[in-house]
Design a protein around this nucleic acid. Sequence first.
DNA 1: TGAACATATGAATAGATATTCATATGTATG
DNA 2: CATACATATGAATATCTATTCATATGTTCA
Lengths: 119, 119
Amino acid sequence: MTQNGIECCDSICVHEELLQKVNAHMPKEEELYDLAELFKVFGDSTRIRILFVLFEAEVCVCDLAEALQMTQSAVSHQLKILKQAKLVKNRRAGKSIFYSLADDHVRAIIGQGLEHIEE
Amino acid sequence: MTQNGIECCDSICVHEELLQKVNAHMPKEEELYDLAELFKVFGDSTRIRILFVLFEAEVCVCDLAEALQMTQSAVSHQLKILKQAKLVKNRRAGKSIFYSLADDHVRAIIGQGLEHIEE
DNA sequence: TGAACATATGAATAGATATTCATATGTATG
DNA sequence: CATACATATGAATATCTATTCATATGTTCA
């Protein structure tokens, strides 16, 4: 242990205070898991592209597939994931189903992400 | 085609205007990819937990391992990923290496994520 | 310099995931 | 009601990824 007391890492001198502070502020297991699951949804360029389309307008599945040059099935699978994460919502109009952004968190999160990578 | 012109989805009547608008605003392939890569880094509960520890203080690897009850190796591998994404930085102090948050985007992004899941 | 310690890293493995293909569900229309 | 169309979904596969294990790198100190 040195004068300032911040020396590391003998098992004897693990920083107990720090560990207690960390444990006090660490979210619960479930919240951490949900948070990771949410970001996982943003962590795929196909889904990111879908979200960028929805930034422009409410769109039906077949237009999404056309816009992104993807299979209807692939788009549909990803839309399901986006919907489960409550990032998009949909409504039926005849045979078609139109998707749109669920709320403004999507823009906010992607906006922050863009800021970070554009440094 | 119906009166209002927003009927979908015969190949004949894909919404050309929409597609053009989408293409005009869609980021480049590389930017989309980088964005997805960034969120992928947030999309793992181990890395989220590491970031929450770093919210409290600058910490060495062995304390991180202790705090999270993980192998030094596992922590080190994840720290590498966080560093590549420029979410954390490090400095050497003797034998130890201390990690800390690279900038405030990390807090902002996680904050937005927390807001979303807490609805 | 050599021993002990803190961290990094490569290879291997087990588990997760995006797309494809085939098909089911649900809706409008003749 | 039967057909065509738009979307959803289950299974299979190929790819990716987090952890583990063994070991390498880099630092301190005697």
